[in-house]
Simulated assay, not measured.
Amino acid sequence: MNIKHLLGVHHVSAITANAKENYQFYTTILGMRLVKKTVNQDETSMYHLFYADERGNPGTDLTFFEIKNAGRTYKGTNSISATSLRVSHDESLQYWKKRFEKYEVNHEEIRNVGNRATLAFQDFEGQRLILVSDENNRGVMGGRPWEKSTVPVKYGITGLGPIYLTVSKLEHTEKVLISLLGFRRKEGYITRIDDLERDVYVFETGEGGTGAEVHVIVLSDQPREKPGRGSVHHVAFRVENKEELLKWVDRLNNFNIQNSGFVERFYFRSLYFRDRNGILFELATDGPGFESDEDFDTLGEKLALPPYLESKRDEIEAKLQPLITKE
Rank of each mutant, 00 (worst) to 15 (best):
86 R>G: 10
87 V>H: 00
91 E>T: 14
91 E>Y: 11
98 K>Y: 09
101 E>W: 00
105 V>A: 00
106 N>D: 15
110 I>P: 08
113 V>F: 07
116 R>D: 03
121 F>D: 04
128 R>V: 12
129 L>I: 09
130 I>Y: 10
134 D>H: 09
135 E>V: 04
135 E>M: 05
136 N>H: 14
136 N>Q: 13
141 M>N: 12
142 G>Q: 05
143 G>M: 05
143 G>W: 00
145 P>C: 06
145 P>N: 08
146 W>Q: 00
147 E>Q: 13
150 T>L: 09
155 Y>I: 05
156 G>M: 00
161 G>F: 11
162 P>N: 09
164 Y>F: 15
166 T>C: 06
168 S>K: 15
168 S>Y: 05
168 S>C: 04
174 E>D: 10
176 V>I: 15
176 V>K: 06
179 S>H: 15
180 L>G: 05
180 L>C: 09
180 L>D: 03
183 F>N: 02
184 R>I: 02
186 K>E: 14
190 I>H: 11
191 T>K: 13
191 T>R: 14
192 R>S: 13
193 I>N: 09
194 D>V: 03
194 D>A: 14
197 E>T: 01
199 D>Q: 12
199 D>C: 10
202 V>L: 09
203 F>L: 06
204 E>A: 03
204 E>Q: 13
205 T>P: 02
206 G>K: 03
207 E>G: 05
209 G>C: 02
211 G>H: 11
212 A>T: 02
219 L>P: 04
221 D>H: 11
221 D>N: 15
222 Q>K: 15
